[in-house]
């Protein structure tokens, strides 16, 4: 049996890669055999893995889901597809969390931020020079669609407050706090603990600088509620935010989202 574009395909002695492409993806621009570009006349062997690529083609939703299922496992992926996650703030933490969750195919993501992309964001946030001046919500949504066009993305260009957080994120499975401002971090946790008691929650505190990456930990506050960071490294004039360490924290947050969705971190 061959594996062609992530699906099994029966092998016959004497098959060539070009033949396979003509049958399964006519007009394919690039043929890949076991991870390496290969010519049309490459002779196939049983168990070969082939990718037939038409440059610029957007895969179907079924192909995308199938590919993710092959990578993540079917049960896990089906759960991801049904899940919804809210991300409050899409700066250094939130833009990385959002992209990570789009990549793994979380079904529904709600992003909220009121900022515009500026030059001083680019060094750690997932925006591009040509997006300077765009609303972060619009810019990140565009990037996420390029990563996974089948995630439902709700991008809210709003200023979040302790009062509007429960209504805007009421239905999500997990809420991720990615604010920069410590007052908003406190407001968001208060809102969640008081008004969203059934929801998983992942906040962050202490992600600045270039201190030991292993001091960034996931601290459980109570069932289903976590704070990621070292708890003390504050962003300030003398200690900035660096992409590597913020990225460690963001991916701890994203991994906790996965674990909460899979029921591995006991919810309330």
């Amino acid at each position: 049996m061959l594996r062609v574009n992530e699906r099994p395909y029966p092998f016959h002695e004497g098959m060539r890669l070009g033949e396979l492409a003509d049958r399964l993806k006519p007009g394919a621009d690039i043929l890949v055999l076991n991870g390496t570009p290969a010519s049309r006349d490459s002779l196939l062997q049983d168990e070969d893995v082939c990718a037939l690529i038409k440059i610029g083609e957007i895969p179907s939703a079924i192909d995308m889901q199938h590919t993710l299922e092959a990578r993540h496992g079917r049960d896990v992926q089906r759960l991801f597809k049904k899940a919804s996650v809210g991300i409050m703030g899409i700066g250094g933490l939130g833009s990385a969390v959002a992209l990570s969750l789009a990549k793994i195919g979380i079904g529904k993501l709600i992003l909220a931020d009121h900022d515009v992309v500026v030059l001083s964001n680019i060094h750690r946030q997932h925006y591009f020079i040509d997006q300077i001046g765009m609303k972060k919500t619009a810019a990140l949504k565009k990037t996420m669609v390029r990563v996974n066009p089948f995630v439902s993305i709700t991008a809210l260009d709003v200023k979040l407050t302790e009062q509007n957080i429960p209504e805007l994120f009421g239905g999500v499975d997990v809420l991720v706090e990615c604010f920069d401002d410590p007052t908003m971090k406190a407001e968001a946790l208060r809102a969640a603990l008081q008004h969203l008691p059934e929801m998983g929650y992942v906040g962050a505190s202490g992600v600045a600088g270039y201190g030991d990456g292993n001091t960034i930990t996931c601290k459980k506050i109570k069932a289903g509620v976590f704070i990621v960071g070292d708890g003390t490294s504050e962003a300030g004039d003398s200690s900035g935010l660096f992409a590597p360490r913020v990225g460690i924290a963001a991916h701890h947050q994203a991994n906790l989202v996965v674990r909460l969705l899979l029921g591995l971190e006991k919810n309330k």
Partner: peptide, 8 residues
């Protein structure tokens, strides 16, 4: 008490 520091 849960104290937050800025940065994100």
């Amino acid at each position: 008490l849960i104290r937050f520091v800025g940065g994100g």
